[in-house]
Design a protein around this nucleic acid. Structure first.
Lengths: 345, 345
DNA sequence: TTGTAAGCGTTATCAA
DNA sequence: TTGATAACGCTTACAA
């Protein structure tokens, strides 16, 4: 109370003085490092508790070169996929003593570069990138060069996005297999004109497309480019798009996002097609949306919680033993097809 | 290249040496502070650019006692309301040079206290609390005491949550007026048995209830406690709940969350009630869900972007001129009723 | 077991 | 206009 409260904050010298010990001893008590007599420890801890002392994180950071913070970069957080990932990551990291510094980069390369640089300047211990937008377009390695540069400073972990490079570790859902399975199921249940709708040409969207192509090939059904629809991730947009003249007839649709699938449901309702009798629809991400629509949407669940826990495990491994941690560069987590009422497998 | 790369990081001494100036001069160039000759400035800036020098944020933090970081506390981020708020906040704060440290506290008091403490220990410049869960239950000021304590260290800003106290500033949507307006509109369009469904007894939920009560009173319709349903925020739960025996007949339902409203739509479909002919439904938050369901949901939009931009403005005001910034403790932002197909006003 | 003292990389106050 | 130098609060050899 009678202290010189230049900041209202007590420092290690104050504690040392009050306990009649040196700052080194106080430091040792705080960090449970080195030998301290039980008696001294008790005394110091008591005072720290009474004063409600919190060490200055900046000073600790300066000495140790870490503030136990992980940078998380997403294009936008206003998206179910991103926010659920962040939710899992934050919870698990917090329980292990790490904080999250969040940054929304947008989808433009310049924003991605800028926000990566800002995060790095905060001396984060590791960087997490969520979403396959960070993979850039195929065949343009220069679009991911800034990530490889970042990886020279801190380990980089990507979620549902594969990036080639030293010190970059990806944890992904098997998008390809998921869509292949769904395609096969649709074919097995009698569909022949299966459409594929996506809002992106990202790494994961391409993997999904690959699964679709493989599924068709497997059954000997010819792939038709005009059955692949590139649309906006908007219920309203898709609803109208599908009514367009350029859209060939289809009896099933696989979407890379639940919103897109729901746009198809709305379209079907508009033109009097019955789901799943006349049209089967499959979404992706198993979001709340898939329960909100009518009929309820069959969707692919990418086991986000598992992806995130693997990611956190890998981060801690790489931080705890930087050298010997032999991490796989691409780790694949199983998915699940959640069947509801828009298909009849 | 031939440096002692103990961390791969260049420091101010290196720059000073390379430019043949003192560290003080380098610091002045960086901060655009003090007088520096044009020639010297050019020279130093050139070297900084070439080396791609980034000042050590911890050292800066230690000296200035800020790392330009704002703490954001939410119960969970896997919620449309929270994640859209964070999205707006992060974007606006980033554009003004502030980073966000994110923490998910859960809904338990112990978690809230713990995470508040952790955030404060990171020397954040301000703390943002999102959601009225932080207001605690009515008449229990001890549940918000930790927030008043936090407010002694940094200014605290709450979003859609009012907390009484020094250095605590709330920005809220006028939940009461919104629900009153909707209630009046339902009455005007012929409804008499209007139910109210909520998943919470939080500050904002109570404000909404208040609006409902006022709206009924205005029209001389007696308030009935058994027309207020306390439910879970789950489509499935509400869908079944409304079929229960204890639920009296109702011809309209106002929900405090879109999920709850959609549960009511599903219930109506199940028992063959037509919406809006037999039952009108109003949701809250105007989330993507309100476009996914069938029919599309009338919902109240709380103008989150505006709430967030007001909050950020107020934060910056209070940080830039801590003393003279005369901020209102409770700022109310207008809402909008978005009418879709579940009502006929 | 404890204490002294040298960093860590900035900013800021003086002198020059 | 510049340059020494003392903070800032902590960690950690190294000494005692």
């Amino acid at each position: 109370m009678d202290k010189d409260c230049r900041d209202g904050s007590v420092n290690i010298y104050d504690i040392a003085r009050m306990a009649n010990v040196s700052i080194a001893t106080v430091s040792r008590v705080m960090n449970h490092s080195g030998k301290v007599s039980e008696k001294t420890r008790q005394k110091v801890e008591k005072i720290m508790r009474e004063i409600d002392y919190t060490p200055n994180a900046f000073a600790q950071g300066l000495g140790l070169n870490t503030m136990h913070a992980i940078g998380i970069l997403v294009p936008t957080i206003a998206d179910n996929f991103m926010s659920s990932a962040i939710d899992y990551l934050e919870k698990q990291l917090a329980s292990r003593g790490y904080n999250c510094i969040l940054s929304c980069s947008g989808f433009e390369l310049s924003g991605k570069k800028l926000h990566t640089k800002i995060l790095l300047s905060k001396h984060i211990d590791a960087l997490i990138l969520i979403g396959s937008t960070y993979a850039g377009r195929e065949g343009t390695p220069e679009e991911t060069e800034y990530i490889r540069e970042a990886a020279q400073k801190v380990p980089v972990f990507t979620i549902n996005c594969y990036i080639e490079g030293e010190n970059i570790y990806s944890t992904v859902s098997d998008n390809c297999a998921a869509v292949r399975e769904v395609t096969e199921k649709l074919i097995a249940s009698g569909h022949r004109a299966i459409a594929f709708a996506t809002d992106s040409r990202s790494y994961s969207a391409n993997k999904k497309l690959e699964g679709y192509v493989e599924g068709l090939a497997q059954a000997g059904i010819p792939f038709r480019q005009d059955m692949v629809f590139y649309v906006e991730k908007s219920i309203r947009y898709v609803r109208e798009y599908l009514k367009g003249d350029s859209v060939p007839p289809f009896d099933a649709l696989i979407a890379t996002e639940d919103e897109i699938a729901i746009g198809a449901l709305k379209y079907a309702a508009d033109i009097g097609k019955k789901v799943p009798e006349d049209l089967s629809v499959v979404g992706y991400n198993n979001s709340t949306l898939s329960l909100a629509c009518e009929p309820e949407l069959t969707s692919i669940d990418n086991h986000m919680e598992e992806i995130c826990s693997h990611t956190v495990d890998r981060i801690l491994q790489s931080l705890q033993s930087p050298e010997e941690a032999e991490l796989v560069h691409e780790l694949t987590v199983p998915y699940a097809v959640i069947e509801r009422s828009t298909t009849r497998f």
